[in-house]
Design a binder for these strands. Structure first.
Lengths: 165, 165
DNA sequence: AGTGGATATCTTGACGTCAAGATGAAATGC
DNA sequence: GCATTTCATCTTGACGTCAAGATATCCACT
């Protein structure tokens, strides 16, 4: 069996054990690796989406509209529920997408407080292209995990995540 | 055995399977849960550190200095290597910490391009307090994982992370 | 010594995010 | 009906981040 290599987080934990041997740093290792991994993955994802003229933020909104199905319309409130951002952030995202011609704001005749965000043809075409590249990229990013690893990792993520939502 | 419950990410995947059955969305499930989990954990961590007058960013710098050991001094370049942020971000973080009286910039007499960032007494006292609360919080956040889950989760995170660093 | 490239840090301008509150419209209760 | 509360969205101001480039210093080689 190969010796396990010391990674960046291991070195951080070793420093803490030396300086503060009273602290139990096992959870810090998990949370630290999770954060670093998330940062790396986020940057990889951003790079691929940028080739399609989209930020991760923009893509998230377009993808939410796309997967909601025909007629590709949701209210800002609907989009909020699905994306873990504040209402101000969503307004900002929609503003940009509208400026770029990917979505339009339609007045909702049944409730004048509300609007409907709808994909334009350009928005639909862009997200269809981008989602293919995005999914392929996600497969690339996970290619070094075995099938069993992926199942087990997903199980643990789902269990952990269930504490928060 | 309890039926597995459908979570937020499961609903997203179900929408994609209906709309785009050609896409393999298993990696999307993993990456989606990882991102959401990271967001939740980040917010929980931020909440506890805020009680000690620190943001996660500020804490990261102070903690890096603290765990480096006496005399609690590192250059901005050293801090950069350990924190996955750009040089501009690090300058900004140090500026704030200096303004708040947690660190000082010392001229490095051996290299006038360089400075040394050193914890003040106030900075040391603050980080010592904060790190205790932070570690306790990390234990709370992982309390619903079994000992075996934690070991396995950490193993998978470390393996996955090794693809990127 | 002098020159050119490498190094360490800081500056600038643009983004994305949030919390808190403003605005306007709908629903509810009397 | 009118007042009050709730709701949906947008606005504002503050932060944290990054990429790209500016500045100052050091080092290596002639």
């Amino acid at each position: 069996m190969a010796e396990e290599e010391q990674d960046h987080v291991d070195r951080i934990l070793a420093q803490w054990r030396r300086e503060r041997p009273d602290l139990d740093v096992e959870p810090m290792g998990i949370l630290g690796r999770l954060k670093r991994l998330g940062t790396h993955l986020g940057r990889e994802v951003e790079t691929v989406l940028a080739r399609h003229g989209l930020s991760t933020s923009s893509f998230d909104v377009l993808a939410t509209l796309r997967r909601s199905g025909v007629p590709y319309q949701l209210s800002p409130g609907d989009l909020l529920e699905m994306t873990m951002v504040s209402s101000g952030t969503m307004t900002n995202r929609i503003d940009q997408l509208e400026k770029a011609g990917f979505v339009e704001r339609l007045l909702n005749p049944e409730d004048r407080r509300s609007v409907l965000i709808v994909l334009t043809e350009k928005g639909l075409a862009t997200v269809e292209e981008a989602v293919g590249a995005h999914v392929a990229n996600q497969q690339r990013l996970t290619r070094n995990l075995t099938a069993e690893d992926k199942v087990e990792f997903d199980r643990l993520l789902k269990k952990f995540l269930s504490d928060f939502e």
